[in-house]
Design a protein around this nucleic acid. Structure first.
Lengths: 246, 246
DNA sequence: GTCCGTCGGCGTACATCGTACGGCACCCGC
DNA sequence: GCGGGTGCCGTACGATGTACGCCGACGGAC
């Protein structure tokens, strides 16, 4: 791993032209798209420099001519898929009221995370100030503009909703990944776990955990239900925001 | 990496005795504690099998006599630090009302994530049904028992609050990590980034993003403020829960 | 007391990762 | 036509988790 870290260069790359080819036709765009395809199909771990290069038909080290390193490639991947969010669909602010607008924002972000689960692993750390990320911020803020919130409150509300979506989406992705890695569905895993858990828990007493856990897993048919958590949490949060506005 | 995955064995390990020594005095407890110390000091990436073994004074492969693999060691680390949550302090349900109780739960979890930032990277996937995790679930549910929520609602509310805390804690940890890795403080990074961003953004127009982003970063003195997000979000969520109860 | 099977401890080896380094060959300006 | 810069890329290094198999020390049977 390199110790370098040049914010200026990263930013310039994010905003620059990705279609200017080198001698063999290699472009930044092609590299990023190959990496995204790999990550979509097999997870972020599969988006290896070697495998990306193979997919493109170039030598591994040739990638470094166009991209400083893995970190910057990740940033490019992130900003690229963020571009999918509101292109070809309605602007979030075109909805009827801030509540419907925020719900729409949440749903679009949720869908994006389902389509690209690796997004959650690739973000974190400093924000990715690419063009599409800024476009997204702008579009989402429009929903909250002019409804009686201060500027800081607008940012806080948006952050709150997005943090919620990210959290439940991460939970969803984690479960899906566990299922893929272990080869066990949620139900199979529970069937293998429950009896051992029962045996090992004898002597201890968890009345509430037992009662509530049982009720929940009965309803969810699983150990957790991110889809339900998404909807429930969004409702509660929007109710709280309502109260903030009044 | 091995392809194995034995829920039964993992559970048994979590609940079993960690103090039974092998021939050279090596115990599961010692291994786990060394790994935690490493992760606390230098991040989860530093908790390598080789480095853990070195710290203990044993051969690398000897660890595998006591622990099936890295995954299971992570689970053990997680359940162990979860044990810190409510030991030696008040039970969350001893508070005055569910609201103060939930606030306490959120704060304890937030503190834990600050003390052990790697926790956020080590969880995810299926839940870690260790003894301390169950104790935590039980203790936290007590806060919400008998206030007019159904069992499923109790689980949903708790999940919502914990998801929020996890999200903002992850944001905090990400910023701290970026600062450590890049050697740039938040302010230094912004000073290096802002001018380039300004230059590259000419021609585009982000009126709201500019206005709101400026106002926020002025108040936070940074690109984001997880501490503020924690408090703000918690208030909003608890207001929403209040409404759910009424 | 002796012997032997079992099992804890661990050295070596392998596939995989990101990437530093340096050589080769092409292409553009003179 | 030719010299220098630059795109391309093969090789090599230090990590990682862990499979495999050897060694040597215990514990029970006689």
């Amino acid at each position: 791993m390199s110790a370098k870290s040049d914010p200026g260069r990263s930013l310039a790359l994010l905003w620059g032209s990705h279609t200017r080819p080198g001698r063999s036709g290699l472009t930044v765009r092609a590299i990023v798209e190959a990496a995204i395809a790999l990550a979509d199909a097999e997870g972020l771990d599969a988006a290896t420099m070697r495998r990306v290069a193979d997919k493109i038909g170039s030598g591994t080290m040739s990638l470094y001519t166009h991209v400083p390193g893995k970190t910057e490639l990740n940033d490019l991947m992130v900003d690229t898929v963020i571009g999918e969010l509101y292109t070809g669909v309605d602007d979030p602010s075109g909805r009827d009221g801030w509540r419907a607008g925020m719900r729409y924002v949440a749903e679009r972000n949720w869908d994006l995370s389902l389509r690209h689960p690796w997004l959650l692993d690739a973000t974190g750390g400093r924000p990715t100030l690419g063009p599409n990320a800024l476009l997204k911020y702008e579009a989402e803020l429009r929903v909250l503009d002019g409804i009686g919130l201060t500027d800081v409150q607008m940012d806080s509300v948006l952050t709150l909703v997005l943090t919620h979506v990210e959290g439940v989406a991460r939970s969803h992705a984690g479960l899906a990944r566990a299922q893929r890695d272990s080869g066990l569905t949620e139900l199979e895993w529970w069937r293998a776990t429950a009896p051992v858990l029962e045996r090992v828990m004898t002597g201890h007493d968890f009345p509430l955990a037992g009662r509530v856990g049982e009720a929940s897993s009965q309803v969810y048919q699983a150990s957790a239900d991110p889809v339900h958590a998404f909807a429930f949490g969004l409702d509660v949060i929007l109710d709280g925001v309502q109260r903030l506005i009044d």
